[in-house]
């Protein structure tokens, strides 16, 4: 056991291997969709593990969701339950692009509708941030909840996007490569943000907003940025999700979806990117493996969460980070 940990530690300290691994991973995921034998090989391996490529892509999407919610709920210490609302905005905005506006768009340009989805969600996040200045804590939770319900209800009343029955005929553009790419981008952007001046500002807000304000932290700017970035990536995840599921209905993005993301965040641990990844991976795979148990699955999953909270209230990682997710200078500082 000790040897394994030592090896992992060494691996973590090696700053060269990470980009290499990422590039190899990306090329692999890209190659899988190009070469049929490779794809079949992967599928037979996954079959042995009781998984399929759909679940793997979902893991990527959940990593994005989990990490981006962690920015607001973990690093900034707010309690937002509206993440599924941003997700649905991203899903719908991107689907409007691919279904209605540019139906003949080449698949390789898929990043464009995804960014559109992200930007639309970010705008909503910006608005919500403006509302959040006056409120905090539980009142902010309720505003995000109301936001979620308003988005769902508004989408249900817009016939252009199919009303309550949702949008159909969305092309299946989300490949493993795209899911992998966006997950890496999310983690990379968040990492760089968190260890910048902005990151320290939101840490200060988490510890004490009033004190931070009086010490000269620009609370408003930090909050707006945190909410917008978090919403942007939720929108990206929503866009990927819609183009994986090939349809989008308002009901898909309800309170239950928000709760699921919350569970992932707190399972993995707040204030930790590694935790977000672990939370998303563990939750997605576990809930897939436990599918045969029917509703008992939904007894077991939250029970794990409750037990975790009781015996390890910060989640698996909780304000700890693997050295890979720290910038170079930060990683060195932690070591000394």
């Amino acid at each position: 056991m000790g040897k394994v940990m030592d090896f992992l530690k060494k691996l973590g300290e090696n700053r060269v291997i990470l980009p290499v691994l990422l590039v190899v991973g990306f090329i692999l995921t890209l190659a899988i969709s190009q070469f049929a034998p490779l794809e079949q090989g992967l599928q037979s391996v996954l079959r042995e593990l009781h998984l399929n490529t759909y679940v793997i892509a979902l893991v990527g999407i959940n990593v994005i969701l989990c990490a981006s919610l962690n920015l607001v709920n973990g690093y900034m210490g707010e309690f937002s339950v509206g993440h599924a609302g941003f997700m649905s905005l991203g899903a719908y905005a991107s689907s409007i692009v691919t279904v209605k506006l540019l139906p003949d768009m080449p698949d390789a340009l898929f990043f464009f509708p995804v960014i559109v989805g992200g930007v639309v969600a970010a705008l909503a996040g910006f608005l919500l941030a403006l509302l959040s200045f006056k409120t905090r804590g539980d009142y902010l939770a309720i505003i995000t909840l109301a936001f979620l319900m308003i988005v769902k209800s508004a989408l249900e009343n817009i016939p252009y996007v199919g009303g309550p029955r949702g949008m159909l005929g969305i092309p299946k553009l989300t490949t493993l490569a795209w899911a992998f790419f966006w997950a890496v981008v999310t983690i990379w952007v968040l990492r760089n943000l968190l260890y910048s001046k902005f990151g320290r500002a939101i840490a200060a807000i988490r510890e004490d907003e009033i004190a931070a304000n009086s010490m000269g932290v620009r609370v408003r700017e930090a909050k707006i940025l945190a909410f917008s970035v978090s919403a942007f990536f939720a929108g990206v995840a929503g866009a990927l999700f819609a183009h994986l599921l090939v349809f989008a209905t308002p009901a898909t993005f309800g309170i239950f979806t928000s709760t699921e993301i919350l569970v992932m965040v707190y399972l993995g641990g707040i204030g930790s990117l590694a935790g977000s990844i672990i939370g998303a991976v563990v939750y997605t795979l576990l809930s897939n493996w436990l599918l045969p148990l029917g509703t008992w699955r939904m007894v077991i999953m939250p029970l794990i969460l409750v037990l975790l909270m009781l015996f390890r209230p910060k989640g698996i990682m909780g304000f700890r980070e693997l050295p890979w997710f720290l910038p170079k200078r930060e990683a060195r500082r932690k070591d000394s």
Partner: peptide, 8 residues
């Protein structure tokens, strides 16, 4: 979160 979990 525990309360949310207990509810579920």
């Amino acid at each position: 979160i525990t309360a949310l979990g207990c509810g579920l």
